[in-house]
Design a protein around this nucleic acid. Structure first.
Length: 279
DNA sequence: AACGATCCCTGTTGGC
DNA sequence: TGCCAACAGGGATCGT
């Protein structure tokens, strides 16, 4: 599932293809993919013929500057990926949008479950979209322990839900939230108000190394359907996961079988020994 | 206001 | 073997 490391890996691949390039042909094949625009056809009409500037990322959003004061926003959702192809190459199923550049490259947005989207916003639309209210980036702009302590104080939600909430820290999804809590030795069902400063520090200090490791290995590819790198390769972080998807397998630290519980409406994987619930 | 629950979508998986 | 319900999940939205 695309989370920050998968999105950042994707961004690094498409940046050299897009930055400075002119979009010569933009097609949205599936209207739902452009649903964040008032008119789905705005995506192709606004991008066609325009030059792309910087390709940035915030949380799980890829945000590109486009000439004409436009912002091109891409979210991979849960099954989306960007594919770098040459015109004429056979298209993968569920190629929901195509962006052809003057560099002779086609960027293809493939997204079977259509939770992802592409959008092109004017400055006013960008403000109205709420995308600028997304939280601090988990990799580039992580809040300090003091800031996290202040934000967590007296709050009710379980820590797993808090880490998934993109309004505070943006970029963690279900896989990396489980990995962070495993490294930090915190049970996912702990309420954030119950965490002491040392525990919040352990969580805070696990986030960047876990995400950096994910980026270094090209992200996590769970199966054939899921995320692939833009060149078609699979990410290799799967084999390095310590908790996610390892139910029944031994904890790499203590050997206790990893357990799975549904917490905050998401399957959560943890070591009952390293991540005990009681203090 | 805060927070939990529900929905969207479709390929894959597991049970019978 | 074949069928079908359950499952996966990010984020918007709804209800309490």
């Amino acid at each position: 599932m695309p989370e920050l490391p998968e999105v950042e890996t994707t961004r690094r691949f498409i940046e050299p293809v897009l930055t400075g390039a002119r979009l010569e042909r933009v097609e949205v094949r599936r209207p739902r993919t452009a649903r964040r625009n008032l008119r789905p056809e705005d995506v192709s009409e606004r991008l066609n013929g325009r030059r792309v500037g910087a390709v940035k990322r915030r949380g799980k959003f890829i945000i590109s500057d486009v000439e004409g004061d436009l912002t091109w926003v891409t979210h991979l959702g849960m099954s989306g990926r960007m594919q770098i192809a040459k015109p004429g190459e056979v298209e993968a199923p569920h190629t929901n949008a195509v962006f052809a550049t003057d560099g002779g490259v086609e960027l293809r947005f493939v997204d079977p479950r259509t939770f992802g989207f592409v959008a092109v916003f004017t400055p006013d639309e960008m403000s109205a979209s709420g995308l600028d209210r997304i939280g601090r980036d988990a990799l580039d702009d992580l809040p300090s322990v003091d800031e996290m302590s202040a934000a967590f104080a007296g709050r009710v939600p379980v820590v797993k839900a808090a880490l998934l909430d993109q309004r505070f820290i943006a970029g963690l999804g279900n896989i990396y939230a489980d990995e962070v809590l495993h490294v930090a030795r915190i049970h996912p069902a702990r309420t954030i108000g119950s965490l002491d400063r040392d525990e919040i520090g352990r969580i805070r200090n696990a986030i960047v190394p876990v995400l950096q490791s994910g980026v270094a290995h090209g992200g996590t590819s769970l199966n054939d359907l899921a995320y692939l790198l833009p060149d078609g390769r699979a990410g290799e972080f799967l084999e390095r996961l310590g908790a996610y998807g390892r139910e029944g397998e031994p904890c790499r630290t203590c050997g206790t079988p990893i357990e799975r519980l549904v917490i905050a409406q998401r399957s959560s994987h943890f070591c009952p020994t390293c991540q005990h619930l009681a203090d």
